[in-house]
């Protein structure tokens, strides 16, 4: 009987000591907030398009930090997913098609002579890239447009086009070489196909 009590007593004593240590550490090393959100936010493309289902990029960053999937951002595409996967050390998954597809970079262009100056697109633009005043023609600052599409829907006269940004001699860049297998002709590159989607 005594040994049992002794054993329990010793264990309780140990637990108390350790509990005290941990309690102290908890106070001493208390951490506020979650700095990871900022880092995630920095990787998102900041189009503020809402295709992920969140009102802007920051809320999505917070959602990711809380465990949402990292593949809900079509404007960022696979590059962003890869970057997020690297940061969070998780598997890079393909883009979730439910939230849209990855398109080429586009900007909004207003057909000026059709614009009636309703300012609806100005209110819709998340980054203040549309310029104009009530009953006056509006125009888009192409440099600042993130191509989020949000101004297209509200336009009552459908005068906003999303135009793909073409390649000029200044923005052109070399392609990635095709690699080893592509140069030797008779290959059905099954492994490579898997890599491409990876």
């Amino acid at each position: 009987m005594f040994t049992v009590l002794l054993a329990i007593g010793i264990l309780v004593l140990l637990s108390l000591i350790f509990g005290a240590i941990l309690g102290y550490a908890n106070v001493r090393f208390h951490v506020e907030g979650d700095p990871i959100v900022d880092q995630i936010d920095a990787l998102l493309p900041q189009t503020q398009c809402g295709q992920c289902g969140h009102p802007g990029c920051r809320p999505y960053a917070e959602a990711i930090a809380n465990g949402e999937a990292i593949n809900h951002c079509p404007p960022g595409g696979q590059v962003t997913i890869q970057a997020l996967a690297d940061l969070l050390d998780v598997e890079a998954v393909p883009l979730d098609g439910d939230h849209g597809t990855e398109n080429a970079k586009r900007v909004a262009v207003i057909r000026e002579d059709e614009c009636i100056g309703c300012t609806k697109c100005i209110q819709a633009c998340p980054v203040d890239a549309i310029l104009g005043a009530a009953k006056q023609m509006h125009t888009v600052i192409a440099d600042e447009c993130t191509g989020c599409d949000l101004c297209v829907e509200p336009c009552p006269v459908d005068c906003i086009d999303m135009v793909e940004v073409g390649v000029t001699a200044k923005t052109w860049s070399w392609d990635k070489p095709q690699g080893i297998a592509a140069t030797s002709l008779n290959i059905i590159a099954t492994d490579r196909q898997a890599e491409v989607t990876h």
Partner: peptide, 8 residues
């Protein structure tokens, strides 16, 4: 097996 160009 990997369907690579064996000769190459």
């Amino acid at each position: 097996i990997r369907r690579r160009a064996v000769g190459f």
